[in-house]
């Protein structure tokens, strides 16, 4: 069985020293090994941005696509071969700005994939512009007077879109993050894991220390029941989204693959595609 080392490759990430994304990479590698995957059974599909490079830093199948479209590509991979484990990954700009439409519909569709967002509240690769996750008043190169748009709450949006698994974590907490990714991989449906992953170069406000001071860990609430949708929504609003842990999970709803009429357990990619003459005749009969 593969250990987390098998999910490492020899590519040196081009992230800045101290970037939160390193821990996310490590957590994915550990979680993949912990759930018993082999590298060839995993496909990591990523978007564009600093975090989008992650698919190239994990020893597995990886596709680094176009900005904002990791989710539809990942869903295509899963539909084509449901035997694979599929992780989609990218930043907050990728998933909540240019790709927000796909995020909401991927949540609704509920294919069995795990979506990990590295949320640093800023655009890093383009060198410091505002993100939908930036706080109001946040000054960046594109908002020199401070952002005048309200901050997007991906957790609330995910809840209202009918998400079946919502978690949030902090890249400093490797243990929790790994456990949540494992839970996401084990969840039979779409799992959203938003990870506070500080940008040490362009975001001088939402720093490691700032997160440590401001986040609430759900582990501190032993009575918290992640199957209670109302309670989850309340908790998100109560904490203004600054919470970590498994926030909501619906184990009842079947994943998309399991709702498609006639969809088999065997991956479509592994099935025969040759049509028989008999099958063809039946198709032709409708046109006579």
């Amino acid at each position: 069985m593969a250990t987390f080392k098998e999910f490492r490759n020899n590519v040196k990430p081009n992230w800045c020293p101290g970037c939160g994304d390193f821990s996310v990479q490590a957590a994915i590698q550990r979680a993949a090994a912990n759930v018993g995957l082999e590298p060839e059974q995993l496909a990591v599909i990523s978007g564009i941005g600093c975090s989008g490079r992650i698919s190239g830093y994990i020893n597995a199948y990886g596709l680094h696509g176009i900005h904002g479209r990791a989710l539809p590509i990942a869903q295509g991979v899963k539909l084509a071969n449901r035997e694979l484990t599929v992780i989609a990954s990218g930043g907050d700009g990728d998933g909540f700005a240019i790709g927000m439409g796909h995020t909401v519909h991927a949540i609704r569709r509920n294919l069995d994939i795990t979506y990990i967002v590295m949320d640093n509240q800023i655009y890093g690769l383009t060198k410091g512009q505002t993100s939908p996750r930036s706080a109001e008043g946040f000054k960046t190169k594109s908002t020199p007077e401070g952002s005048i748009e309200s901050t997007l709450s991906p957790l609330e949006i995910a809840m209202s879109a009918g998400a079946t698994f919502i978690a949030q974590s902090f890249s400093s907490d490797l243990k929790q993050l790994t456990a949540l990714i494992e839970a996401g991989l084990n969840h039979k449906g779409f799992s959203l894991i938003n990870v506070f992953s500080p940008c040490v170069t362009f975001n001088k406000v939402n720093t490691y220390d700032w997160f440590k001071e401001n986040i609430v860990n759900l582990n501190e609430f032993p009575d918290y029941d992640p199957s209670n949708r109302m309670a989850a929504m309340n908790k998100i609003m109560e904490t203004n989204g600054m919470l970590t842990g498994l926030i909501y999970q619906n184990k009842e709803r079947k994943s998309y693959e399991n709702l498609i009429a006639g969809f088999q357990e065997q991956g479509l990619a592994n099935q025969d595609i040759q049509l028989s003459q008999d099958q063809f005749e039946k198709l032709l009969a409708e046109f006579k």
């Binding site: 479209r69 869903q75 295509g76 084509a80």
Partner: peptide
Amino acid sequence: IAAVTMAIGANYAGV
């Protein structure tokens, strides 16, 4: 956009 990128993903995965 989702239509074409989903098709790309599925072709990549062999269908």
